[in-house]
Amino acid sequence: MAVCAHCQKPLTISIEPDSEDEDGNDDVPMGEEPETLPDDVHLSCGDHFHWECLLEAYEYSKCPACNRSIVAASSSSSSTEERIIVDLNNEGGLQQGIDIAPILREESYLRAYPEERKCRAFLEFCSEGDHRAIAELVKSCGEEVTADDEDGEVMTEAVGGPSKSADEVLRYQDPIGDMSSGLHAAVANGHREVAWLLLLLASEYPEMSFPALVYQEAGTLGVMREYQTGKVDIRSLKDAHGRTAEDVARGAGVIWQGWVGTGRLAMPNGAPRSNGRSGVATTLRG
């Protein structure tokens, strides 16, 4: 029977039984055994790993055990991204031929730069069109929680660990992808509500040009537009291919009809960097 090439243990994971039932009883039935589930990542070289063991020992493009290449050729002649194809067997069942390269790249990156977890979550929310989650994430930037450590001492730490400021999150560009911003991601996936929210929070797009419903929704979400003088306008950000969000919109179909060429998704030619406002924050209330 195959074992993990990293820890030499069976390719399973034990799930402890829930100690709290619906009545809030903390008693666990005597003799109840932990549930055992498969946890097997089968690489193309033939070696098997637990998922966490693979992440811990991961060396890009090579198996951590035998040092053989685990990179597969791209399935598209126009794509330069390398793939890592595996058979994955876990609580979701057996999945064959899964490309885990994007997940490995992101997990490895976050282990090296944990302070960017909120930034990565922000990009995911932009891609998914979850403008409410974006608002909650932005509001949580800089928050602190108080708790007791193992010795009973009170400690204060940032929510979710080390984090970027709200301004940094809103203007984040994907360093392990193609340097896309949240606005690029929203446009590529056809999410207008997210685009409006990002323009409101991270651009100098004129306030009078926003639909009233945008302000009403922002007020409901509890976010506000701070003055933007001296800050990077999200419309000016370009990806690794030199494209603005407007360039992406041109190839995204009719959903962005009426947006291209209006200054919503790219800086107007010759537009000033500052809107000249006095610096007073505008509270967004319906």
Rank of each mutant, 00 (worst) to 15 (best):
G230H: 04
I134S: 00
R83G: 02
A57V: 10
I134R: 00
V187D: 06
E143R: 15
E207G: 06
I15R: 14
S76W: 05
P114I: 07
C119R: 01
G92Q: 08
Q96L: 03
C63Y: 08
H191L: 01
G97S: 06
K9Y: 02
R235L: 11
A166M: 03
C119N: 13
E33R: 07
L201V: 01
L94M: 11
L221P: 01
G263F: 14
L183W: 09
A195E: 03
G270D: 09
I103V: 10
A252F: 02
H241V: 06
R132M: 00
V280I: 10
A249M: 10
Q173E: 09
D39L: 00
C45F: 09
D239Q: 04
R225K: 12
V260D: 01
M208P: 03
R225G: 05
N275S: 15
I100A: 06
L37F: 15
G92W: 01
V260K: 13
A5L: 10
A72C: 09
L221D: 04
E107A: 15
C66N: 04
E116K: 12
K9P: 03
P114R: 08
P206M: 07
S78E: 11
R250A: 14
V254Y: 05
V254I: 11
Y58M: 03
I15A: 13
Q96T: 13
A218G: 11
F210K: 04
N275Y: 10
V194E: 00
I176W: 00
G286E: 04
E168S: 01
L170M: 02
R285S: 14
A245M: 10
G177N: 05
T156H: 07
E144F: 09
D247F: 04
Q8H: 14
T229H: 05
A185Y: 03
E107Y: 07
R277L: 12
G182T: 04
G129S: 10
A65F: 12
G253F: 02
R264C: 11
Y109A: 06
Q95S: 14
L54M: 12
I134C: 00
D87F: 00
L43A: 01
A5W: 07
C45S: 07
E20T: 15
L183A: 09
V71R: 10
E33Q: 09
G242R: 15
A65N: 13
D26V: 14
E204W: 08
N89W: 05
P162C: 11
I234S: 08
L284T: 15
H6V: 08
R105Q: 13
G242D: 07
S78N: 13
S76G: 04
S69L: 13
D174P: 03
E204P: 03
M208C: 07
E217R: 15
